[in-house]
């Protein structure tokens, strides 16, 4: 499997191009904008986009998907939206695995932020979208959602091999092991939980 990254200077976000070695058909993960340099990169690599993976569907990414369809024709789009007539995509939220471009993909649904927030695991690589970047977790809409998001991410990460390389939508790459050690949100949440537990237990003892 080969991975190439493209950094959109307009949106300050990463788009990933993933293909199986010696195969022309390729996956684009989270296309933020179909800019000339991205198209040039695809042309130089002699790749043809046949599949798009979306870690979360928004207006900007959906517009890029439409541009890709105009360039490459039929494209299979995978995301986490359920029962949506507005977006013509295959919902993989409930699946354990699916295959596209000869690559086995594990969609991982993470609650707490958007209802369609997915991470995609392929081989030893995890594409986390905007849910988690190096050292930080994306903001959720409210405190319960945020706590749930952090807890679900932490539990997911603890089950994954530590050497799994993490490719987020924004910011530099990292690894699962490094995030468990240095992610501010994980550590902050642990401290918060410890403080609350200590307070609860001390109140119970004093009763």
């Amino acid at each position: 499997m080969e991975i190439h990254s493209y950094f959109s200077t307009n949106y300050l976000q990463n788009t990933y191009i993933i293909n199986k070695k010696d195969r022309q058909e390729t996956i684009i993960l989270d296309p933020f904008e179909i800019e000339a340099p991205l198209f040039e990169l695809l042309e130089n690599l002699e790749l043809e986009v046949t599949s798009v993976l979306l870690t979360h569907v928004d207006k900007q990414k959906w517009s890029s998907v439409q541009s890709l369809k105009r360039i490459y024709g039929t494209i299979e789009v995978y995301g986490g939206i359920d029962d949506d007539r507005k977006h013509d995509l295959v919902s993989v939220k409930e699946l354990d695995f699916f295959e596209t471009c000869g690559i086995s993909v594990q969609p991982i649904f993470i609650p707490g932020h958007h209802s369609d927030s997915l991470m995609f695991r392929m081989d030893q690589f995890l594409f986390s979208g905007s849910l988690i970047g190096a050292g930080l977790i994306d903001k959720a809409d409210e405190s319960f959602g945020r706590a749930l998001l952090i807890q679900c991410l932490q539990e997911t990460f603890e089950e994954l091999p530590k050497q799994t390389i993490l490719f987020p939508s924004s910011g530099p790459p990292s690894s699962v092991g490094a995030e468990l050690k240095t992610n501010y949100s994980f550590r902050h949440q642990e401290r918060l939980t410890a403080r609350i537990s200590a307070k609860l237990f001390s109140e119970e003892i004093s009763r």
Binding site: S5, A134, P172, P173, S175, K181, T182
Partner: peptide, 8 residues
Amino acid sequence: TMEISFSG
């Protein structure tokens, strides 16, 4: 350098 990890 771009998109490099020197974590830890």
